[in-house]
Design a protein around this nucleic acid. Sequence first.
DNA 1: ATCATCCGTT
Length: 611
Amino acid sequence: MNSRQRHPLKLPKIPIRVSEAHGSSPMEPTPQEPFSSHSPTYQALLRAGPRLRPLHQVHARILVSGLHCSLSLLTKLLTFACTAGAIDYTRRLLFSVPNPDSFLFGSLIRSASKSHLSTDAIFFYHRMLSARLKPSNYTFTSVIKACADLSALTVGRIIHSHVLVNGFGLDCFVQTALVVFYAKCGDWYSARKLFDRIPDRSVVAWNAMIAGYEQNGLAEEAIKLFHRMQAEGVEPDSATLVSLLSACSHVCALGLGQWVDTFIVDKGMDVNVVLGTSLINMYARCGHVQKAREVFDGFQERNVVAWTAMISGYGMNGYGNQAVELFHRMKTEGPLPNDVTFVAVLSACAHFGLVSEGREVFKSMKRDYGLAPRVEHHVCMVDMFGRAGLLDEAVRFIRDWIPGEPGPEVWTAMLGACKMHKDFDLGVEVAERLLAIEPENPAHYVLLSNLYALAGMTDRVEKIRQVMIHRGLKKNTGFSSVEINHVAHVFRNGDTSHPQTVEIRQYLEQLIYRIREAGYVPETDSVLHELEGEEREFALRFHSEKLAVAFGLMSTSNKTLIRIVKNLRICGDCHLAIKFMSVVADREIIVRDKHRFHHFKKGLCSCQDYW
DNA sequence: ATCATCCGTT
């Protein structure tokens, strides 16, 4: 079967003789030279690279010169064809190979998985097993990566068992690939179990696990693991820092983010585009826009991603005009904006009531840049008109500009606008369309319920609650986190799990007493309609963002800026309460919610109560 | 002869 290994010299000799007979090239090697990479056909193949037409020509040459049995040539040809994305050609080629060996399959699987032809990689793996060839550790890393890209948990688990059967369970490359695979499939628990069993953990293994936590929304775990990596003396590289900065952005860990920045400078690390963009993003998402801009300005190779990150950073932090201004600068002196850039700009226009600007940007998208608007852009436009109170125009936009049936995202934006401007009739109509499309999404019921509550229709509110219970739909639980001394503390609504719960609640009660004296009246009308009067107020009192603010204030000295991150949108009552808190405690408080930043300072918020 | 990790919008 594996003739090349048993008779290593036999096959290479044949092609040389054959090509000599044809006298194909004056550069043909002399017979005493080994075949290997000096063969002119092989050289031609290397020159062709992953380009289809030159490959066809070399293929013809291989056939004519009788080299069609040379597995090394065919392997190279196959991998190039695969990298070129010509999957049908690759498959036909594979069928024409008389006795493909392990190495050929291994290379092919690797090319396929690297070229994002993941299903083909798995198909080739299957063919390899059918041919009774043994996969190597090299094969496994590639096919597992393919499973990871597809999040194919079941197939991946089977291949994991093949790994064990074939004795590669302790190969660190394979183990790292498996960690990535389980993490990408959302099974970070299995990923961690595997990670803990890797005997010699390389930087890449650490990076895989840290990135795995981060991608699964476990930013705190990512940060904890980074600290352990430090403790074990493993030197982080740029990939580690990229994931770490992303984790910092998620939990607003500015302290740690700044540490990363100085670390990069101290070590004289090369700041590539990815790392530079992560830094910009970290500063922007921690509410430090000026610093983000400094990094952006000092950064040489700014690509679309870096510009987009900076524009959206301005938008999120309440600087709508700067977002638009930077976008105009980008058009004259920066790279070409892409569709994501337009989402960032349009979103900034929507949030800051820049209606005519937004309209013009939307038009220019297709006209000047040939970019077709996607759902995200439609949502921004509906949001923009809706927030500005132009509900008719929002409806017209949906009717005239959105091809086909609008998706749930568009109706959600429309419903939000109806709620904001208290257009009850339109809101109910929109909500019904929404529920018809996505009857299982609890968020829609909550919005509709809020709408009924605003209209004072408590019987309908109750009815919706019954439907939700009946269908087993639960509201998304909110959480907020605050960073104190480089440690993120997470709070849920009504949370009592924090070791200092008693003190936090006492502090919060006092704080609420003080803001009530300053004129705060709880906004109880938009929440938990099943509760009455005082109960409602009590339910609001321990919202996660209030707990986080209280803990932040009591744990830090005067004048320290408090940064909170919340996974959902901040509620109206908390928004009002924190405005008062910023006065009575004389502190700046920044809350980053699902969509944007709220910089609370002296009783005002950067969002201008418009979010 | 080869191998695993990292970025932007809603």
